[in-house]
Design a protein around this nucleic acid. Sequence first.
DNA 1: ACACGCACTTGATTTTTGTCAATTATGGAA
DNA 2: TTCCATAATTGACAAAAATCAAGTGCGTGT
Lengths: 232, 232
Amino acid sequence: MRPDDLPEMRELEPFKSMREENFAELMHAAFLQNFPAQVQLITEGDHADFLFVVIEGCVELYAQANGREAVLAMVRPIGSFILAAVMKDAVNLMSARTTGKSRILMIPAQNIRAAFEKDDAFARAIVIELAGYFRAVVKEYKNLRLRTAVERLANWLLKYHKDQGAEGMVELPYDKRTLASILGMTPENLSRAFGTLKPYGVSVNGGRVKLDDLESLEVLAKPNVLIDERTT
Amino acid sequence: MRPDDLPEMRELEPFKSMREENFAELMHAAFLQNFPAQVQLITEGDHADFLFVVIEGCVELYAQANGREAVLAMVRPIGSFILAAVMKDAVNLMSARTTGKSRILMIPAQNIRAAFEKDDAFARAIVIELAGYFRAVVKEYKNLRLRTAVERLANWLLKYHKDQGAEGMVELPYDKRTLASILGMTPENLSRAFGTLKPYGVSVNGGRVKLDDLESLEVLAKPNVLIDERTT
DNA sequence: ACACGCACTTGATTTTTGTCAATTATGGAA
DNA sequence: TTCCATAATTGACAAAAATCAAGTGCGTGT
């Protein structure tokens, strides 16, 4: 790949802080691939051979055990995944599949690690990146431990409502079965959770959710910066 | 503090990789404190002013919301906590309290960040440290999402059984209410979970648990390296 | 338009987990 | 030792969530 094919990559942490020559070298080793929907990119337990960067489309990170499956996160442009496994030269803890047509940059793990050894600024940027990832999972964990399913949905709605301009409307970014799994519940339970939120001004119409009474929804949800805030 | 007061600190990642002068400087800025049991060391939401290193004793990391409380982790010698918050110069996502008499090293956050800027090897060691933390939380998250309470207990027993020499006996390292919270259940439920494990050769006597039928316990638990292994 | 498949919903039921209350250990301190 | 506070257990019950089984609705392709 040519280093200037993806100017937005250069703007992305942790690549922003890299020395030009190291960035160029990394990009030369990388592959930019187009994938259709529902392609398995990595499987949990496999060795992490690439760092993945989602340039376009959407990727679902999930895990399986005991006949159960859980969606752990969705990665949208421009976001990377399995950085921790790459840095530790270890196996993936999650699987990944595209949920729609996607354009994905694959950077060989050994090149990432080589750049990490060579480029001090890159190494430091990765610290901040990983610290952010760590804190994001801790928040997800707290969300699951400290809230019921209805509370998780209510807070999810408030968060995405703010993201989407806070105009009394939330557009669901994925289908409901995926949303249910992200929120740690079954699709049936998500339907019912929407039902219990009706008295709080929440009305669903396909992928559109109308929020008519934010005050009472917030009373129910009790949003918490130490769980819901993305940047904190 | 004198740099040679704690030789074991020097052996600990990420301090092992530090240049001698930087380590000495860090240690000079640090405080070694003795705390009795049940002392609140940090509170979630407060700014992270110190990196904590448990030298002796035990510290409980926990979080609260919606009138609920969850123990997220126990830190034993020699382990550190809130590294991510220190690196990001952010607020703590968890609270911490001593569970018994403890000796704790407190290193001012700005000194950690200064050493991080100055010492390239230290910066790189922190990457590995944080990547390990990240993967540990992901495993905890998967444990919670993909297993029932009884399965979590069964796997916890198998893990600690191996830790303690695999001699058919597990000594509980903390009281049962704490263990219950670590496993994401109520104390009442933990009692009942021990009850359901009785047919699988599990018998409890105070803080001692006897495992008489590891084979059938493993059939029930279905241990998974991508959840239960500490190092992977 | 029609039929088909699929996502979603709804209802009935079970399982799992939490809550409340009452007992029963258990481990110091006097 | 006895007493006391606390931890742990047990039972009855309630709530939350999962499961199973129909249904409904909706968009696509023919």
